[in-house]
Design a protein around this nucleic acid. Structure first.
Length: 858
RNA sequence: GGGGGCGUGGCGGAAUUGGCAGACGCAGCGGACUUAAAAUCCGCCACCGAAAGGUUUAAGGGUUCGAGUCCCUUCGCCCCUACCA
């Protein structure tokens, strides 16, 4: 027997598969389609165990799907635009494309070495003009549909790098590149109006039953729908008159989910960024303290802001507003805990029901008016009989429960209060009638800021003309090519590039300037899965018929870190493309598997900066790709985080060796390496029976496990079949395996079944065994998945447990065809002695066929 | 603060609908083969106990004939999100 040698067989089969086009998409419409997709990687350099895990899972699903008779699309590409390439280019005084394409080649070689079955003719590389031109085209279509907006907003700005940063590029208030402090700035930037799709993005989560619940939850939270009301407060001065110094608005609108608590509003808050705030205090004694507070608030980084228990700061503005329900005048403060970009940036403070307002009121000695209490609260009786309004409850140490009965609330007193309560309905009905408010829905979701002041991205196809204003680049002029001659190390950018911005206005023909911002890389990853269906289309991003055949993706696999951003953006793109009539579906990914992270042995996340990144190369060199694939799948269920520990890898290598030997031995080709040690006829018959049962049971089990993505237990089951075969081989003489009329066919069948079962996991070894040992000429990966007989998967006689009051007392063996009564009888006989000695009698008998019998006894 | 998840041997993990807890593997121990080692093969391997037997799924309680699984309380860990009004 030839020893198992992955170092020779793996590269050989990889070469043959390449030559025969084994992994090409068949486009065979006589078969049902299955689109198996793994999130495409960023070409950061060498691959690490996280990649190995992600793509091993995908490859098993793809290979298994082919054997199940599906026409499979299983492509791979690169998310190739982005900052690291630029940083590397600056560091090495080179060009981002050099670094990027170099890394792509490295990664591609590693993927091939792992034996992943991708159709490399369909590769999509995001920085390829043939791909990004269609990103620009899609941008223009979005623009036509009113989904593109250029507007002024507060954004994260790094003064050192002179660029806008995404939230994820700001860590602990510092720029991740230069570690300078990030500022909030009002800048005019490009946005995709994803908020137009907030409701369908939320509603359609219901359809995504094939997604992990937590991802759906995370998206729902991110979209953050809350029902409430906008209520108008009229602004005035201390005497209740219209304010004297000029101020652009005299009505301030708040958003609240709790209009029922209006009577508890004892002060009013504006965010430091509130528009018009500066004018409001200009020239008054409040100008300096207000401006000081605003400046201090602006210096607080986003991350610091997010740290829960920060002390709240505020100052009085000199203004008041009139509470629309009772005409009461309440002071207007500016407070640093009010965020500008949620709701209206103005809040009615109800300290009795809101912990934050409560703390603020305590700190600045503002009134706390109890207006909602539970019935059993002693305050309820007290306040009901009270004539004077109680405006402070000094004995409280925190805000109270906000579900209960309204008190001190004028004509609404006595109504039940709460989020969707009768008090809300009553108060809102009156406010609406008086024109002081309206019901509304707020989303937490913000529009998507897509412009970046970076070179290595997809240029935004827009032109500024002094006469015509903002003009889209005509579709016929696409792509707007990134200029190749740029000296990033010298600080050159698209904006300072000598000729990139020069152009003529497509409308009037006069000299104009090109937009020099590029798009967020997440725009590239929002539709790449569509391009795979038609990767060489020169007229459109993709052909609708092709996309409609392959999409939605049947199994999408990737890291949880994309739970919101990429997956939400892709859903948004799909919905817009559906509205455009380009695709017939509204959700891109039917089933989603979020694989767990691969951490180091100490449970630390792997990262280049920590220097604890583990690459598969050395392991492949020692044990081969099949063993590495099998081990990472065997280590843990796919969605669980795992701490990398190489110790078990040798065990899986041993297992593959065992399969190798057992398959040889089953068909009489092990030679001197046979497992045969000798055994009695009884042993031979016994192990043969077990082997037949295991052959059918394990096929059933592995099939079920693959359907549910339980790769670890699938491998366990294959180990069990291998063990059963080993037991049989040890006792049955080698000649019996070919010559015996019952053993021979069984051995041949088990050998084929084992090779097929392991083919998706260890594709090279399976292929080698299939050809060299089992003598086939077609690929094992083109075979159909083995079937099984459920009847043969169970022994004729089943062992069952007999319990007394749930405690195991004896075991019985019954025929699998035995009736419930027969089982109970046999069980009762088995415990008769025990019942007699303990003087017990049976009250009730519960039989679970195939499992146990439980007697309730007294 | 809000939301989600988890807690099983020395370790990774299994137990699919409430039905024999610890499958499968790693590590460990013992044995066979070998001059020896490696490889391979066999056996043992939750805890206490010499054994009989008892105990055991973070802790406590509940529902049930029966609970790792369902419910409640407490503790611990992880992830997401956040002054969201």
């Amino acid at each position: 027997m030839k020893p198992y040698n992955p170092h020779e067989t793996e590269p050989r089969w990889q070469r043959i598969w390449d030559e025969t086009g084994q992994d090409k998409v068949r486009e065979d419409s006589s078969k049902p389609k299955r689109y198996v997709l793994e999130m495409f990687p960023y070409p950061s350099g060498d691959i690490h165990m996280g990649h190995v895990r992600n793509y091993s899972i995908g490859d098993v699903v793809a290979r298994y799907s082919r054997m199940r008779g599906f026409d499979v699309l299983h492509p791979m590409g690169w998310d190739a635009f982005g900052l690291p390439a630029e940083n590397a280019a600056i560091k090495h005084n080179s060009h981002p494309a050099v670094w990027t394409y170099g890394n792509i080649e490295t990664q591609k070689a590693s993927f091939k070495r792992m034996g992943f079955s991708y159709d490399w003719d369909r590769t999509v590389v995001a920085c390829d003009p043939e791909y990004y031109r269609w990103g620009q085209w899609i941008f223009l279509q979005f623009w036509k549909r009113g989904l593109v907006e250029r507007r002024n907003s507060p954004v994260n700005w790094c003064p050192n790098c002179e660029t806008v940063l995404a939230n994820e590029q700001v860590t602990e208030g510092e720029c991740w590149r230069c570690h300078g402090a990030v500022e909030k700035r009002d800048l005019t930037q490009w946005y995709f109006k994803i908020t137009d799709y907030a409701q369908p993005l939320l509603d359609d989560l219901e359809q995504l039953g094939g997604w992990p619940e937590r991802v759906r939850q995370m998206q729902a939270n991110w979209i953050g729908r809350s029902e409430g009301a906008e209520i108008d407060f009229v602004m005035c001065d201390k005497e209740g008159n219209a304010p004297q110094n000029p101020y652009p608005q005299d009505i301030v609108t708040v958003f609240t989910t709790r209009p029922d608590t209006l009577f508890g509003c004892s002060f009013f808050l504006l965010s430091p960024e509130y528009k018009g705030l500066k004018e409001m205090v200009a020239g008054t004694e409040y100008e300096k303290p207000v401006n000081d507070l605003c400046e201090a608030a602006a210096k607080v980084s986003a991350v610091e802001r997010a740290q829960g228990d920060r002390e709240k700061h505020g100052v009085f503005t000199g203004r008041y507003v009139v509470n629309p329900v009772n005409g009461e005048k309440v002071p207007v403060w500016v407070a640093d805990y009010i965020v500008a970009d949620y709701g209206t940036g103005a809040v009615m403070a109800v300290p009795c029901g809101d912990q934050r307002d409560f703390e603020f009121a305590r700190k600045y000695n503002l009134p706390i008016i109890p207006i909602i209490v539970t019935k059993d609260d002693p305050l309820f009786a007290k306040l009901n009989g009270q004539k004077e309004r109680i405006v402070s409850s000094v004995d409280w140490d925190s805000a109270c429960d906000t579900e209960g009965i309204l008190v001190q609330s004028g004509k609404y007193t006595g109504l039940t209060g709460g989020k969707h309560s009768e008090a809300v309905d009553a108060i809102m009905a009156d406010l609406i009638a008086q024109g002081k408010g309206k019901k509304t829905v707020q989303f937490r979701l913000r529009d998507w800021l897509i412009s970046r002041q970076r070179y290595w991205g997809n240029p935004i196809p827009a032109i500024y003309c002094d006469d015509c204003g903002l003009v889209p680049v005509p579709e016929s002029d696409l792509p707007v090519l990134l200029p190749e001659d740029i000296d990033l190390a010298a600080g050159e950018t698209l904006a300072t590039h000598k000729s990139f911005a020069e152009c003529t206005c497509p409308k009037c023909g006069k000299p104009a300037r090109r937009e020099t911002d590029t798009m967020d890389t997440f725009t590239c990853s929002s539709w790449y899965y569509l391009r795979y269906t038609d990767p060489h289309n020169a007229h459109l991003p993709f052909d609708s018929d092709k996309a409609n055949r392959w999409l939605p993706v049947d199994q999408y696999i990737g890291g949880i870190e994309h739970a919101i951003l990429h997956l939400l953006y892709s859903r948004f793109f799909t919905k817009v493309l559906n509205d455009m009539g380009m695709v017939s579906f509204t959700e891109p990914f039917t089933n989603l598997l979020c694989q767990g992270m691969v951490k180091d042995a100490n449970g630390e996340t792997m990262s280049k900066s920590k220097g604890n990144v583990i690459a598969p190369e050395d392991m492949i060199a020692e044990y081969g790709a099949d063993a590495v694939r099998a081990y990472i799948l065997f280590m843990a269920p796919p969605d669980k985080d795992l701490n990398w520990d190489e110790a078990g890898l040798a065990g899986l290598y041993k297992f593959l060796n065992r399969v190798w030997r057992v398959v040889h031995d089953l068909v009489g080709k092990a030679g001197e390496d046979t497992l045969f040690k000798g055994g009695s006829k009884e042993e031979v018959d016994g192990f043969k029976k077990v082997l037949l049962r295991e052959r059918h049971r394990v096929v059933g089990k592995v099939t079920e496990d693959f359907e549910r993505n339980n790769f670890n237990t699938a491998i366990s089951a294959i180990m069990e079949l291998t063990n059963a075969a080993g037991d049989f081989l040890r006792v049955a003489p080698p000649e019996k395996r070919i010559s015996c009329q019952t053993c021979g066919p069984l051995c041949a069948d088990v050998a084929e079944v084992m090779v097929k079962l392991i083919a998706p996991i260890a594709p090279h070894m399976a292929e080698e065994l299939w050809h060299e040992v089992l003598g086939h000429t077609d690929s094992v990966h083109n075979q159909s998945w083995p079937t099984f007989d459920a009847d043969l998967a169970v022994d004729d006689d089943i062992e069952m447990v007999v319990q007394l009051n749930g405690k195991i007392t004896s075991k019985i063996t019954v025929s699998k065809t035995a009736s419930e009564d027969e089982i109970k009888n046999i069980a009762q006989q088995s415990v008769a002695g025990v019942l007699a000695t303990r003087n017990l009698s049976i009250v009730k008998a519960i039989a679970v066929p195939g499992k146990l019998v439980n007697f309730v006894v007294k």
